[in-house]
């Protein structure tokens, strides 16, 4: 990897260069919660000053920009007993993601495995994913963050450049030639030994700040062993089955498909809607049989898919430890607590 040092004011120049030709999406502050803590979300930005590079976890991932909650897969023009079908992947220009944390970049990398790397790659995702310029930014772990446990606390791939705040300067990791070319147009310098020392100091301090942890040792086997465990009922009784965990997850990609006819009956649409495996009819088949009628079996399936099935298929968990699901869950169901209880820990 190639590294550079830039002065702080140069980052704004880089932003201007990127923003002059493309839409930029970045973390912005939208208000305060009931504890007076700032609320962050990903939004389209036009000014560098709107971006909060020091943001803690956003409530929602930037998913709406790469895996929209609702997206038309196909449109039909009806012609009596016949019809024409048209398909649009809904991406016609590149987007810049300015200020993604390592967990969210790793979320892309893991989604890529199933949505791009498997058979039947998904063009709707590919169109957006292949037209991204990603500027990563370092972060300080919050109380819900356990990305380190999930091997997602550093991003090794899947971005263009990554920015770490060294105090007076930024340390830049350059991954793509596109990023390299853009950086030629601002002032950069080679890092010196002192910059490396400072960088490593920041990283090691960050590692000590994690409060939440998940023990993933032999987790795939343990989930198999504990498939009949009573602990699932404990969590199932708490679960609201509201789907929030999936909706705030940067890697949840499960969906539903609905077809609708226009009011004039002349056209029809096939629409994909992100779904959640905790919703009652997730595994209901035609005729009404439901393979997972109880909340506990659906919640269990969720853990089973993310922490076992995906690992088996792609040698990586489908959880990046961003902690959003635990933070958003009104019933206080968090991944560290659930996994710990499955491993026999007290609840």
């Amino acid at each position: 990897m190639i590294f550079r040092i830039i002065k702080k004011e140069e980052l704004e120049k880089l932003f201007e260069l990127l923003a002059s030709g493309s839409r930029v999406i970045g973390p912005v502050e939208t208000g305060h919660d009931r504890n007076s803590d700032p609320i962050y979300e990903f939004s389209e930005v036009s000014n560098f000053s709107e971006i909060r590079l020091d943001h803690t976890m956003t409530k929602l991932p930037a998913k709406k920009y790469f895996l929209p909650y609702k997206e038309d897969l196909a449109a039909f023009h009806m012609k009596g007993r016949d019809w024409d079908k048209s398909v649009d992947y809904h991406c016609d220009s590149p987007s810049v993601f300015f200020g993604l944390h390592a967990c969210d970049i790793n979320a892309f990398n893991r989604l890529d495995k199933v949505l791009l790397g498997s058979s039947y790659p998904m063009p709707y995702y590919a169109a957006k994913r292949k037209n991204m310029f990603i500027v990563g930014v370092d972060c300080v772990p919050g109380p819900y963050c356990f990305c380190r446990s999930m091997g997602a606390d550093t991003a090794l791939q899947g971005f263009d450049l990554f920015v770490t705040d060294l105090g007076k300067t930024y340390f830049i990791e350059i991954l793509s030639d596109t990023a390299f070319n853009f950086l030629k147009r601002i002032k950069t310098s080679e890092p010196v030994e002192a910059d490396h020392v400072r960088y490593m100091d920041i990283v090691s301090k960050k590692n000590m700040k994690f409060e939440a942890h998940v023990d993933t040792t032999d987790l795939t086997k343990i989930l198999d062993m504990e498939f009949q465990s009573d602990i699932w009922k404990y969590w199932g009784d708490k679960c609201l089955a509201c789907g929030t965990c999936a909706n705030v997850c940067p890697t949840c990609y499960c969906y539903s498909v609905e077809e609708t006819v226009s009011l004039d009956l002349q056209s029809a649409k096939k629409t994909r809607q992100l779904y959640s495996c905790n919703i009652i009819d997730f595994a209901e088949v035609s005729g009404g049989h439901n393979f997972r009628p109880e909340r506990q079996t659906r919640l269990k399936y969720r853990y089973y898919h993310k922490h076992r099935g995906f690992v088996e298929a792609y040698e990586d968990s489908l959880c990046v430890g961003c902690g959003r699901c635990g933070e958003a869950c009104l019933a206080d169901i968090t991944v560290p607590k659930v996994i710990s209880s499955v491993r026999g820990g007290a609840v």
Partner: peptide, 10 residues
């Protein structure tokens, strides 16, 4: 292999 609705276990 995308929508996950048919998953059995995983």
């Amino acid at each position: 292999g995308k929508c996950c609705r048919c998953n059995v276990g995983s």
